[in-house]
Design a protein around this nucleic acid. Structure first.
Lengths: 345, 345
DNA sequence: TTGTAGGCGTTATCAA
DNA sequence: TTGATAACGCCTACAA
């Protein structure tokens, strides 16, 4: 009946100003602003008139102007490390989805695991007047973050530090790693190689510790020669097994501290004619999408990076609302797939 | 000697305004602005004084204010489809790196392969006053993009359409696919299964066509039963091979239209006790990072998504500079790895 | 409850 | 070549 009805998703554009809305509604700009922000109580009548005007004109507030006026920019900065990694990708997705529901837009900037880059990234974000910042791990020092947090609220993922406007939470990597190692032990493995992450990451340290926990609990001595350093990239996983084999170090299982290194390890093993899981059992960590599709599918520790991202975003939104944020990162969980096997003899 | 020397990467913050710089330099704000933007010629002397003041104060222009003042926001919107996919991740990296060199920041928004989401994404970007928009494939109609392009310059990747302020370029998928199929044919394969992408993507159509080209050129008839639809995700690759096998369709090789489906196919084949490449040869497309690390490593068509992203960004920067953009997407290239084998009998 | 006026940091237009 | 001055679109006292 009414041609307005179908509202064929208005043409992609946006030039209507708050002032125009005010004029159409017959009120002052401030009133419109107040309604938009819930800054003050406005009479029911005007509420409606204005809302109608907004709809009619298809008005959308201009975040740029808002930002300048000292209000919010409705944007949250996100310092990621490598935007293209399967790991961070999932997290970013979680962040984006969650922020979007509240009308916020993420501003992603890469830190490249490089302190100076990270600092630059943070400066860029501040200059852009983001309302808050989410930092995914990274190398920048705690004090700097802390200091920055009195300019803008911050959520840090993967570290432990607190401040009045700084909230952090971490996934329980240590328990996760313990589960992984425990599983191998239960399968009868005793000589379990560990491919660590770069120890500059807190979670790399935690995962190493989880491995130690499990072995110790089982009364298995820690053999330093079985522990080889990696850097969370595929190549380092491959290098690691090569090194073990070249040094004639015996092992029946490998625990790689993330999936990417596990993939590299799998390839390295196969190049040396060692089959997974028949000859060597292999466990990863993270459960990136690809872990489900390797041959054989990889047993790994589920970390639900997506949810972690979503939690971070929720915490940020909470802070922005003035609440005390809390986050409940999903508990680690071992996913049994086909890359491990009970030791035969 | 001079404590200024070390410049311990100034504290993360930014509150200095252009006005303060002007005052310190003893000139008017407009002059400072002119120097910053090269809008007009300024005397050498003032140039230097101002530059020094800028350095001294650690001044950084406020992009938000710039945006409002009708100037540029120094941000470029990017409509991606799934930010977490290994494919788009690489492209985004290329875009980010390239933009950063010019002082621009990307604003990533996901389209989720959903027309309405894409429209919303575009609106969000416009509302944020981005200086330009890069669209990676997507479903929004050409006319809409064209119309939008007189509000803001646009670069579209993976489609062919032209406009005064709209530039598009596409990777040569057809040739790439032909190379892949040709390779299998040269290895003696005749019954080559094809797992297509969702035909809503232009490149899926092109890759299908490249397959047809190669077979036709070799005088091999196209068998519809060998062509099974996929959707570019791992799961569909697995489903596809299952379907082929369940229907008792004979084939000695599989060409999956992207790597992710190839991974799924590899797993599906292994579940049916078919080995790659001994029993079945497998080729993918894209060369995502993981293709190098599967067991066996995947023969695939290199697309250098990173470079494509970088090219898109360069083209955008060109338009922003008022130049006529041009892009030279890297030519397709077949990467021989270990997932194919000459047919024995 | 509502309107007016000033300001946020820059750019752009006009004179000088 | 330079400096006032007026926007840009919105928010927030302050006043009514």
């Amino acid at each position: 009946m009414n041609s307005e009805k179908k509202a064929p998703s208005k043409p992609v554009d946006s030039v209507v100003t708050l002032e125009q809305v005010a004029k159409l509604a017959g009120v002052s700009p401030s009133t419109v602003s107040r309604i938009l922000n819930g800054t003050a109580t406005v009479s029911e009548a005007k509420q409606e008139t204005v809302q109608r005007a907004i709809r009619e004109l298809g008005y959308r507030p201009n975040p740029v102007a808002r930002g300048l006026a000292g209000g919010r920019t409705l944007s949250v900065g996100v310092v990621t490390q490598v935007i293209s990694s399967p790991f961070y990708g999932e997290a970013l997705l979680g962040i984006e989805r969650e922020l979007e529901r509240a009308g916020y837009v993420p501003l992603f900037v890469s830190g490249n695991w490089h302190e100076e880059d990270e600092r630059k990234a943070l400066q860029t974000l501040l200059a852009r007047r983001v309302d808050g910042v989410i930092v995914l791990a990274g190398r920048i020092r705690d004090e700097e973050l802390l200091q920055m947090s009195d300019t803008v609220p911050i959520v840090v993922v993967g570290r432990q530090l607190q401040g009045p406007r700084l909230f952090s939470f971490a996934f329980d990597s240590r328990t996760g790693a313990r589960l992984a190692a425990q599983h191998l032990i239960e399968q009868g493995h005793r000589r379990i190689a560990l491919i660590t992450g770069d120890m500059i990451h807190e979670d790399a340290v935690d995962r190493h510790q989880g491995y130690v926990d499990a072995l110790t609990a089982a009364g298995i001595p820690i053999e330093p020669e079985l522990i080889v350093p990696g850097d969370y990239n595929e190549a380092s996983g491959m290098l690691a097994v090569n090194r073990l084999i070249d040094h004639n170090i015996r092992f029946t299982a490998v625990f790689a501290c993330n999936d990417q290194m596990a993939f590299g390890a799998a390839l390295g093993l196969s190049r040396r004619n060692l089959r997974v899981p028949d000859d060597i059992s292999l466990v990863g960590f993270d459960d990136v999408v690809m872990a489900r599709y390797t041959v054989p599918p990889l047993t790994t520790v589920r970390q639900s990076v997506y949810e972690i991202g979503a939690e971070a975003a929720k915490a940020m939104l909470g802070m922005l609302r003035g609440e005390t944020p809390r986050a409940t990162p999903p508990p680690p969980e071992l996913l049994l797939r086909d890359s491990t096997r009970r030791i035969s003899r």
